[in-house]
Computed example of a mutant assay.
Amino acid sequence: MSRERFSGERLLRAVVLLALLVASAAVWWPAHAARIKELASVQGVRPNQLTGFGLVFGLDGTGDQSTQAPFTPQALAAYLQQHGIALPPGVQMQPKNLAAVVVTADLPAFAQPGQRIDVTVASAGNAKSLRGGTLLATALRGADGQIYAIAQGNMIVGGAGASAGGAKVQINHLAAGRVPEGGTVERAVPTQLSRAGVMQLDVSANDFATARAVAQAINQAKGAGTAQAVDGRVVRVRMADNMPDPVGFVADIENLEVTLAKPAARVVLNARTGSVVLNEAVTLGTCAVAHGALTVTVNATPQVSQPAPFSQGQTTKTEKVDIAITQQGGALMQLPPGAKLADVVRALNALGATPQDLLAILQAMKSAGALNAEIEVI
Score class of each variant (00 low, 15 high):
274 G>L: 07
43 Q>I: 02
195 R>G: 11
220 Q>Y: 11
253 I>T: 01
224 A>Q: 13
347 A>V: 04
190 P>H: 10
172 N>F: 03
295 T>W: 07
179 V>H: 00
317 K>T: 13
63 G>R: 00
239 M>I: 10
225 G>W: 10
257 E>W: 12
34 A>K: 10
124 A>T: 01
6 F>L: 15
41 S>A: 11
146 Q>C: 07
11 L>Q: 14
188 A>T: 04
181 E>Q: 14
275 S>E: 12
225 G>I: 07
273 T>D: 11
118 D>A: 11
227 A>Y: 02
214 V>H: 05
218 I>V: 14
273 T>E: 13
85 I>S: 10
226 T>A: 09
322 D>L: 08
343 D>L: 01
115 Q>H: 05
269 L>W: 03
94 Q>Y: 04
102 V>S: 04
355 P>L: 03
373 A>D: 02
251 A>N: 10
340 K>W: 12
214 V>E: 02
152 Q>S: 11
213 A>H: 00
147 I>Y: 12
279 N>C: 08
316 T>C: 04
6 F>R: 13
183 G>S: 03
18 L>C: 13
258 V>H: 03
122 A>K: 02
53 F>Q: 11
89 P>E: 15
291 H>V: 15
153 G>L: 03
44 G>R: 06
308 A>G: 08
336 P>V: 02
174 L>T: 02
97 N>H: 02
126 N>Q: 09
138 T>V: 00
28 W>Y: 10
347 A>F: 03
137 A>L: 14
227 A>M: 04
79 Y>T: 12
180 P>I: 01
374 E>N: 14
151 A>L: 06
340 K>D: 15
44 G>Y: 04
10 R>L: 15
315 T>G: 05
47 P>Q: 08
232 G>W: 03
155 M>R: 01
335 L>M: 09
361 I>W: 05
345 V>S: 11
93 M>E: 08
148 Y>W: 13
35 R>E: 12
29 W>E: 09
4 E>I: 14
294 L>Q: 13
353 A>D: 13
299 N>Q: 14
64 D>Y: 03
139 A>H: 07
266 R>C: 10
28 W>P: 10
198 V>C: 05
287 C>H: 07
139 A>T: 09
62 T>H: 04
133 G>T: 01
183 G>Q: 01
320 K>I: 09
69 A>I: 01
192 Q>A: 13
253 I>Y: 01
175 A>E: 13
344 V>Y: 04
323 I>A: 12
239 M>S: 06
269 L>Y: 05
276 V>F: 02
177 G>W: 00
268 V>A: 12
187 R>M: 09
358 L>T: 06
154 N>R: 14
43 Q>V: 08
227 A>G: 04
366 K>T: 07
353 A>R: 09
92 Q>G: 06
45 V>K: 07
282 V>K: 00
334 Q>C: 06
189 V>W: 05
165 G>S: 14
68 Q>Y: 08
163 S>M: 14
75 A>Y: 00
282 V>N: 00
227 A>N: 01
156 I>Y: 11
251 A>F: 10
94 Q>S: 11
87 L>K: 07
354 T>V: 14
13 R>V: 13
87 L>Y: 05
2 S>K: 15
122 A>L: 05
37 K>S: 09
123 S>L: 00
